[in-house]
Nucleic acid binder design. Structure first.
Lengths: 342, 342
DNA sequence: GAAGAGGGCTAAAACGATTTAGTTATCTTT
DNA sequence: AAAGATAACTAAATCGTTTTAGCCCTCTTC
């Protein structure tokens, strides 16, 4: 059984293809199609179970009503939640979203952009990797709007972005630790190759300086990217028993690092918060449930998704208008969620 | 800057559109295009940054090299992991996957199928909801292969499916609990409206009968579908303090229910396994990390994804051949992972 | 030197929609 | 009754590919 096309309907209803098209697109009245013909066409279309072919439509109109969402890893709780929000948000504007994961790999990111571009998506929401700015400029040059989320390129304000205020979030966390009397705060992070991680790291150092505390590089552990779980865990364990042994508090700069942290602490029998207080950037189911519950700096995931979508839609509407009012990164406030780990 | 099309290249290279097409599709040799022309076209295409328009290609060939993946909820760890496997697997066969969530809503599932069908995906991998068989038959009638995962329709063997052996998995879990000496085993489940949940429930009752234990309906708690987190949590708490108070072990039939279980136990100060042993169907990061670690029946997620993909690819290849060799549900063995909670 | 074979390319139809510019018939208007 | 307006449609181009059929040229071969 083949799919029914607009011309099948035209034939059966005894009208032209154009007429059917007008009826199916609610342009019948504007095109002065008569009541009877409209009804006839609608009935035939319903009976035959007509569904417009979006490829053909997209080819002709140049609009696919689809946006491409590129995240780091869709199976990570943060991005999964983000994807869900964006999908729901997109539906409100009658857009469909197709998502893909970069695994933080530059090459893969490029391939994904290329793939989405070939599939003619109307716009993009992207969690960029390093060195992706040029590729993104190319999309913009093709008049395809792009909005970055979670990360941004400080030197490229022509690419709009929506993210949490990383600096303020970490600063608030540090102030909280100081207020609770912790003096020797260790940091666990990943390579600060992109601006958002750099901002977080900078806030750590700046807050230490503000409180006239020494800035000891050895208290900052960088877990290299791309390690498998076991290797990364070992890195954290080494830190907890080595350079970070005397810390009274640990600040984990990502969700995943926090999970590694509690796993390591568990293995090493480090009591939280008695031996070390724990604070993590970005929330996670585990942190809410673990004993003790883990304090976090929570990102406003929904709001980021909503604002990103809103920004994208606005640009989709005014496509052609090259200069847009506001392009500086939109930075949303993080929320400190104190729990038992501090 | 507009996108460059095949005819732009043809013009610039001074050849016909067909020639360019042959070169771009590696049919140049078969079509006896000369070495020089091939190189010329390839160079021009590279210089101009040509990317084929997949809409046009799909429209012409009837193949989009895209498969639709419909799961219950992409932000659930189980489905997120499944999606990742399937995406990776699809790439091996040079397919792209677009995924969407039903939220277990029949209507939404229908809409998603319709949307994917309009976008002309070549095949489907679906976690079905109730009453979806007819809709799926329609896809098959249009010659679009479908493979179900995680759930199935026992009365529709013409729709192939790949899933864990739910019955055997739960039976193994029950035997393990008995072997450890637990006598009074409560069950927490959701509505058994679909066969896979029915199979799990049946295994519970059958194993009890096999051991000549009473089958007490009150020890089976059904958490209704669609409750918000707080309401569902309350349901579990009520059970733990009410009908299930005297159980020495609890078997949670899904991942999410298990999480609710530990959350409730924590709130009610129920010690695991001292007060009650915990066993959960389907693994989760939390279960590995929680104190105590939670024993689970682990589903072979990767294998399910791989086999589903393999089955789909086979059907994509032999499209037109209506009768396929093996169509009975493919049931893969679950694995008991004993941890501290028992 | 005519027929046939092959080499090297191109024209044009087709896929399924949208959209512009008509066309035809009927109705006003003067 | 001729001119213009309007109502109710339709023809055909177009989007960017793929693919079939065929064209033209040169070389064999007898």
């Amino acid at each position: 059984m083949k799919k029914v096309s607009i011309s099948d309907i035209a034939r059966k209803a005894g009208v032209s293809v154009s007429t059917v098209s007008f009826v199916m697109n609610d342009k019948a009245v504007k095109m002065r199609i008569s009541r009877e013909v409209i009804e006839k066409v609608e009935n035939v279309a319903r009976e035959m179970g007509y569904r417009p072919n979006q490829l053909a439509r997209g080819l002709r109109t140049g609009k696919t009503k689809t946006i491409g969402l590129i995240v780091e890893n869709i199976s990570n709780a943060f991005f999964a939640a983000m994807a869900k929000t964006i999908e729901d948000e997109a539906k409100k504007y009658d857009y469909k979203v197709v998502y893909c994961s970069t695994d933080n790999d530059e090459t893969k990111a490029r391939e994904l952009i290329s793939m989405l571009s070939q599939r003619q998506v109307d716009g993009y929401i992207i969690t960029p990797t390093l060195n992706l700015a040029e590729e993104i400029r190319r999309l913009q040059a093709e008049n395809k709007p792009v909005v970055l989320i979670d990360r941004y390129f400080p030197e490229h304000e022509e690419i709009p972005s929506v993210l949490v205020d990383n600096y303020a979030g970490v600063a608030e966390g540090m102030e909280f630790l100081f207020a609770k009397g912790y003096q020797n705060i260790g940091l666990v992070t990943i390579e600060a190759d992109m601006a958002h991680m750099h901002d977080r790291l900078q806030a750590y150092y700046d807050t230490l300086r503000k409180h006239d505390m020494p800035q000891d590089r050895r208290l900052v552990k960088q877990v290299p990217y791309g390690y498998v779980h076991e290797a990364a865990l070992e890195e954290v364990e080494d830190f907890l028993t080595g350079d970070g042994k005397d810390c009274d508090a640990l600040f984990f700069l990502t969700n995943y690092l926090g999970v590694l942290g509690i796993e390591a602490a568990k293995k090493l029998n480090i009591r939280i918060p008695t031996d070390k207080a724990f604070l993590c950037f970005d929330d996670n189911d585990i942190f809410r449930l673990y004993t003790p519950t883990i304090s976090v700096i929570r990102q406003p995931i929904c709001e980021i998704g909503q604002q990103a979508m809103a920004a994208l839609i606005e640009r989709l509407r005014h496509t052609g208008t090259e200069t847009l009012p506001e392009n500086a990164p939109i930075k949303l406030a993080a929320e400190l969620v104190p729990r038992e780990s501090i």
